[in-house]
Nucleic acid binder design. Structure first.
Lengths: 142, 142
DNA sequence: TATCATTGCATAGCACGCTATTCAATGCCA
DNA sequence: TGGCATTGAATAGCGTGCTATGCAATGATA
């Protein structure tokens, strides 16, 4: 039974994810951000005050993972967690001023990494790659 | 500054990597394997007795990560590490009988996950996706 | 040959992903 | 209204990735 790693979507995805993480890590470290916080920050920059559960659903991250990530973000002064007034079980997540202020610089760095990765591709190749990756996500999310 | 996560190669790659990992984890757990061991096992099934450094170079994994992964693999009876006869610094990695015996079943499961992910794609789309992903890897590895 | 740089690996410490488990708050229904 | 199921979150434990650091073996050189 043979297996060519350069022809396996799963293998390539894992390798690519590590390469992306290394690059983004290097670029956002000076901002006081880490790669794992990025998805949550993106959601909160778009809509502040989401509940933890809402973040879990939007980001397709396990609840326990999100709880840990949010704890680190709170420790690092990016967010605050406040109990919801209507439902005492719900923790709402609010950006601090510092967290809000990072948006432009952080998004800029992320965009730069994407540009580096896609440098060798034509516009239509980029579009096709994104389309196909979205299709895989849809397939695997069921 | 806006950022569309469904159009970011990095974001999609991270999401896809998590989805792939969940699937492969579920499938190879019964074999006593974990996703992180897979790349090393693939290399060793192809060529047994590689040094740790050789694995690091082939898999583009940090040396410390590989040392940890190999320690778990040894603990779990997949490999043994023996000092090289010529160079006492070198640890050569050898599959156990159990490690060797897992090849067919493990590769089968990995192939099945790839098939699930690519189910919605035509043959030419699959080929194109693999080609583009390899291009990104090449770009980001420099 | 004594010294110093290089190489190969291990360890510490942490980020971030997962499963399993627990607990409190809420909702529902007899 | 009392009892039970559901929901939202925290915690424990572990795999897998990283950087930083240390150390022993080897190689190179004055």
């Amino acid at each position: 039974m043979s297996f060519d790693k350069t022809r396996s979507a799963g293998y390539l995805t894992n390798h690519l994810a590590r390469l992306f993480a290394r690059r983004i890590q290097a670029r956002i470290k000076p901002l006081g951000l880490t790669p794992g916080t990025f998805p949550a920050m993106l959601e909160l920059w778009t809509q502040d005050g989401l509940s933890q559960g809402e973040l879990v659903r939007r980001l397709d991250i396990e609840q326990a993972t999100m709880a840990n990530t949010l704890a680190r973000m709170e420790r690092d002064g990016l967010i605050r967690r406040l109990q919801d007034a209507q439902d005492a079980r719900v923790q709402r997540v609010w950006l601090t001023e510092r967290g809000k202020a990072l948006q432009n610089a952080a998004v800029e760095q992320a965009a730069a990494v994407n540009d580096e990765a896609l440098a060798g591709l034509s516009a239509s190749e980029r579009q096709e790659l994104i389309r196909l990756m979205n299709k895989l996500v849809g397939e695997l999310r069921r």
